[in-house]
Design a protein around this nucleic acid. Structure first.
Lengths: 151, 151
DNA sequence: TATTGTTATACTCTATAACTATA
DNA sequence: TATAGTTATAGAGTATAACAATA
């Protein structure tokens, strides 16, 4: 009862495109010795200065995992930590100039790497695809109380 | 020169939907103690009986990585190895009945988990989205000579 | 000689548990 | 007491290099 042709087809397309996109991101990241997660961290920090906990929540990771990720990126000089002045327990994270530069370079490389795929559509189709993806991507609720109890 | 609005929008939509899909797959997998990679392995084996090398190539992983992945899944009784009778160097991999059952259950859970997202489109939009994704997902060349030398 | 697969090794990613410091 | 973050530990995923068996 959960099956109809249109749902099957779109599910298949979405899952396959997801694997393809992830493959591209993984390859671009790997060329700079960055995992998919590190890539996401850089992307998030491009226009934010979150504390460790916020980052972890955003990525759906444990705070101890964040410590390790940030450690390694900081050791590479891509980002830095700073004690939050308002709450001395908290630690803010932000990109260094080198990190920002790399992030921008990555952005271009990802765009170029995906160009062959999106290029197989004409501009009108691209706009249409973007519009159709909108509701799929848009979360139904603004992430209210996403606790384990819910599942 | 690689920038126009339609490309930007579709790129954004594809990348965001990819992260969303991956998030769902990761959660469904995790509920059964399966990584994204293990999930893919099971999916591939659903209707195939590849040798180790083919599996590794398909997933873009090293053969040594495959050995570990298959070891762990085999230890859980989800799949099994068998010497290939025609080429005694090769090892074929295939799902056990338990593995097949789990794979089918996972398939249903993934479908259900993604239903809220795809359900935000009506059947006509779903068909349209599936059609638009087709060329994006379809590889331009049948993976001819994908050696490091190419990069 | 070349190919298939495993093993040894090392590093990253990940979570759980225990801890320190601050609120 | 509760929250923010780190550290210790353990297991999975990953690649490289060295190896054994087969082609």
């Amino acid at each position: 009862m959960t099956t109809d042709d249109s749902t099957d087809a779109v599910l298949d397309g979405l899952v396959r495109s997801a694997f393809q996109i992830m493959g591209v991101l993984t390859r671009v990241g790997a060329a700079h010795d960055l995992s998919l997660t590190q890539l996401r961290v850089l992307g998030i920090l491009r226009d934010r200065r979150p504390r460790m906990t916020d980052l972890a929540a955003f990525l759906g990771l444990d705070k101890s995992t964040m410590s390790g990720l940030i450690d390694r990126a900081e050791r590479r000089g891509l980002l830095a930590r700073d004690r939050n002045p308002d709450d001395k327990r908290a630690v803010d994270v932000f990109l260094t100039p080198a990190g920002l530069e790399l992030t921008q370079r990555l952005d271009g490389e990802i765009r170029d790497a995906l160009a062959p795929a999106t290029g197989r559509l004409d501009p009108r189709q691209r706009r249409q695809l973007a519009q159709l993806l909108e509701p799929v991507v848009t979360p139904p609720l603004p992430a209210t109380r996403r606790t384990p109890a819910q599942r």
